[in-house]
Design a protein around this nucleic acid. Structure first.
Lengths: 196, 196
DNA sequence: CTACAAAACTAACATTTATTAGTTTTTATG
DNA sequence: CATAAAAACTAATAAATGTTAGTTTTGTAG
């Protein structure tokens, strides 16, 4: 009879969620079973229910924790960085940091949100749309100030966010890389372009 | 007793695969059931098995059809376009066209490949890696010819591909847009950068 | 019209799944 | 040590799923 260990910085529920994120990332939410999750902790499946309410609840915890961190950082950046360039640079740096420090959770939030149940699904999508809108407002401001050139701000935002989501591909390839180097490359590429 | 209609340009199996792509895109492969798929065609689930071998087979058909189209186009581009810029531009244009004309299939191939079973999963990933490698070779050549500036060609390729994958976000938003306009925006953004 | 093949149907099965109920073991507190 | 709470266990359930078997209907060719 193994026991679920509470991590140094969290409850046993947090430990379950963390393990679940790793499992969901590898197998996908639907394909990952509670039995597997329990197995990965050396425990029987029903034991998990002493700590969590349901499988769905775990996914909700993952998605909203991540969403909240991104939103919070966006608002913070808005008040600390004033130029479009420095703001977008801050966003890139934060996405890289999140991807490095919370790979599983970020991946799951990006790929398995569709498995959320209402009203959480709608909620999550709303939060994302808000994020995109605020970012688009930055770009629009930058365009007005002649800082950026771009025809459609939404094209820029969606391209930008997609490219950042692609950071996961980078980690998947498991190349050895420095976060700073990666950040510089992406800033140069997205903001200054590929062409010499 | 409804019957499965064979489309003008394909067998009944093709019709099933097309409907399945739409369903898989909306609900995800695992969450979509054969009964739902049958329902969407006004038929009972077992009837599908007169035309297809298994649920997995449908996913395989979708993923490999799309992968093959992209690979074929890449090779074609390599022989018809000679500068790095014109090649990447051709890739952007093709991705946009594929996304417009085969939205469901492209989306499913991008998001549900993890549900493929071996050896198809490994096969699919290999094909993708080859695609990435070939694209990286283009960029490397471009760097050598001083056509591109970029520190790490792989950062460029993965960023590029991620941004293109993000075209789906654009379609999801259902803005009215012209494909040409979109193409021009993305070329400018990715190749010339956001900064003025 | 007949006969054969294609393709639909109904019924059922074997598995897998998340989850609950009830019980026993462990841990912590007095 | 005794007692209570926390957390593990076993057993079981209800629902859903992909798929098969066997049968009936539909469409087509001679």
């Amino acid at each position: 009879m193994t026991k679920i260990r509470a991590g140094r910085h969290g409850t046993k529920k947090d430990t379950i969620i963390q393990k679940a994120a790793a499992l969901f990332r590898i197998k996908g939410f639907n394909a990952a079973s509670m039995r597997e999750l329990a197995d990965s902790m050396g425990v029987e499946a029903p034991s998990l229910y002493n700590h969590i309410g349901s499988k769905s609840e775990i996914l909700q915890a993952i998605c909203f924790s991540i969403a909240e961190q991104f939103t919070t950082h966006l608002l913070w950046t808005e008040q600390t960085e004033m130029t479009g360039l420095s703001r977008l640079e801050a966003v890139i740096r934060f996405h890289i940091r999140m991807m490095l420090e919370h790979y599983d959770e970020v991946y799951v939030a990006n790929h398995e949100w569709k498995c959320l149940k209402e009203p959480y699904l709608g909620n999550f999508l709303n939060q994302r749309r808000q994020y995109e809108k605020r970012l688009a407002a930055w770009v629009e401001t930058g365009i007005r100030k002649k800082e950026f050139r771009v025809a459609n701000p939404y094209v820029a935002v969606l391209t930008f966010l997609s490219a950042l989501r692609g950071l996961e591909l980078w980690l998947r390839h498991k190349k050895n890389f420095s976060a700073d180097e990666l950040k510089n490359d992406m800033v140069n590429l997205l903001l200054r372009g590929l062409i010499n």
